[in-house]
């Protein structure tokens, strides 16, 4: 059995001579190790015993315990220790919490009183926006339904094109998702895009169909304008206009009642005349 002397947090000049060490026993799997206030220890054969320096009676001393497995941090705990105490620390029990790959789960809960919490770039969204976002009618930017304009080339070739798309061509480009890529980028180089233009400019339907491709910036404006020209095969008279039927209004009901009353009256008169002729 090995005994180690720990440097405890002495309360300073107020340390009283009437003191006693604490005895700490650590157990757990042999592949675990731990540090106490930064000092590393292994679990030899699954067990380790340590003795603190003399601790002042009646005071609580704090040790920061860090548990590791093969050097990877698993958990942090705080141990409170008193003079003369025999404390058994089962590291395996302390690990009943989830093995951690990088989440501080104690900081995930929404602020007190909130069932959910949404932020955009760290700024809380107000309740109305939050409700709008989390309902089924919410609208995150849905890029899959929009045409794409993709500029591929060296940065120097892309820059003037992008400047125009943000400037004098902004209105024409407003319908598009505009992205720029280096020719070697995986997102374009591996899926069939031509990448050797200065720059290459693709306009695509949302499903990928190419509307036009340019290998330089010269005809960009005219192509974008052409996409906004009216199609010769469009016939306004073929547009559906009324996809609904009007519910009966008060006036309609009144007219219906009058028609019904007239019909009933006619039926009654007809029956009366018929009866007389039979006599």
């Amino acid at each position: 059995m090995l005994w180690f002397l720990l440097l405890a947090q002495c309360p300073g000049p107020d340390c009283l001579p009437k003191s006693a060490p604490a005895h700490l026993t650590f157990t757990g799997a042999a592949d675990l190790s731990f540090t106490l206030n930064g000092t590393p220890f292994d679990l030899l054969a699954g067990r380790r015993q340590l003795v603190t320096p003399p601790l002042e009676a009646g005071r609580a001393y704090v040790y920061e315990l860090t548990i590791l497995r093969r050097g990877a941090l698993l958990a942090r705990r705080t141990l409170e220790v008193a003079a003369g105490q025999h404390l058994h620390v089962d590291l395996s029990d302390l690990l009943s919490e989830p093995e951690n790959f990088g989440i501080q789960s104690d900081r995930l809960a929404p602020p007190a009183g909130q069932a959910e919490w949404l932020t955009v770039n760290g700024r809380p969204i107000n309740q109305q926006q939050a409700r709008a976002l989390i309902t089924t009618t919410a609208s995150l930017p849905d890029h899959r339904q929009r045409r794409r304009l993709t500029v591929i080339g060296p940065a120097a070739a892309r820059a003037p094109v992008l400047a125009r798309l943000r400037g004098d061509l902004a209105a024409l480009a407003a319908d598009f998702v505009v992205k720029e890529y280096d020719p070697s980028d995986w997102a374009v180089a591996r899926v069939g895009f031509k990448t050797d233009g200065q720059p290459t400019i693709y306009a695509q339907e949302p499903d990928g169909r190419v509307l036009f491709r340019l290998d330089g910036p010269e005809d960009l404006e005219r192509n974008l304008q052409a996409l906004r020209r009216p199609r010769p095969d469009y016939r306004p008279d073929a547009d559906p206009q009324r996809l609904f039927t009007d519910p009966p209004t008060g006036e309609g009901l009144f007219a219906l009642c009058i028609v019904l009353a007239v019909l009933i009256l006619l039926a009654a008169l007809t029956r009366r005349f018929t009866s007389r002729w039979e006599l």
């Binding site: 809960a109 932020t119 955009v120 770039n121 989390i134 919410a138 890029h143 899959r144």
Partner: peptide, 23 residues
């Protein structure tokens, strides 16, 4: 900074919508 949304919630609708929208 790129625009980004953080959600602390148990609701799955927004996640499903985000994936369907290409995020």
């Amino acid at each position: 900074e790129p625009p980004y949304l953080q959600i602390q919630s148990n609701d799955l609708e927004l996640l499903a919508q985000a994936v369907a929208a290409g995020h």
